[in-house]
Computed example of a mutant assay.
Amino acid sequence: MLSADHRDLVRAATTHAKAVNDDGDHTVAAALRLHSGAVVLGVNTHHFLGGPCGEISALSNRAATHPDDAIVTVAAAYGPTGDVIPPCGKCRQILFDIDPAIRCIVREANGLTAVPVRDLLPHAYDWRAAEQPQRVYMWEGYEDSIRDGSKRQTIRVDDPFRPGEARIVFEKESGDVVELPADIVSVSTAARAELTEQDAQRDGFTDLAELHAALDQHYPGMGPEAPIDIVAFALHTEK
Rank of each mutant, 00 (worst) to 15 (best):
Q132V: 02
I155W: 09
A214R: 14
V106Y: 05
E140Q: 06
R156T: 09
R152M: 04
H123E: 12
G111V: 09
A200Q: 14
R107S: 13
L120N: 05
A214G: 02
P133Y: 10
P181M: 12
T189A: 13
E194H: 10
G223H: 07
Y142L: 01
S150A: 06
E210G: 05
A114R: 11
S188R: 15
P122S: 07
A209N: 00
V157P: 00
V157K: 09
S188N: 10
V185Q: 09
F233D: 08
E108D: 07
Q134K: 11
E108F: 12
Q134Y: 06
D158Y: 05
R118H: 12
A114C: 12
D158H: 11
K151Q: 09
R107P: 00
P116H: 07
N110I: 01
I155K: 13
K172S: 03
R128I: 05
G204C: 05
A129Y: 06
D126K: 12
R107Y: 02
H212Y: 13
N110Y: 06
L120T: 06
T154G: 12
H123R: 13
D159G: 10
K172V: 01
D144R: 12
D203W: 02
D203C: 06
D119Q: 13
M138E: 11
D229Y: 07
G223Y: 06
G223R: 12
T196W: 02
R167K: 12
E194G: 04
S188A: 14
A129S: 11
E143Y: 02
A209H: 00
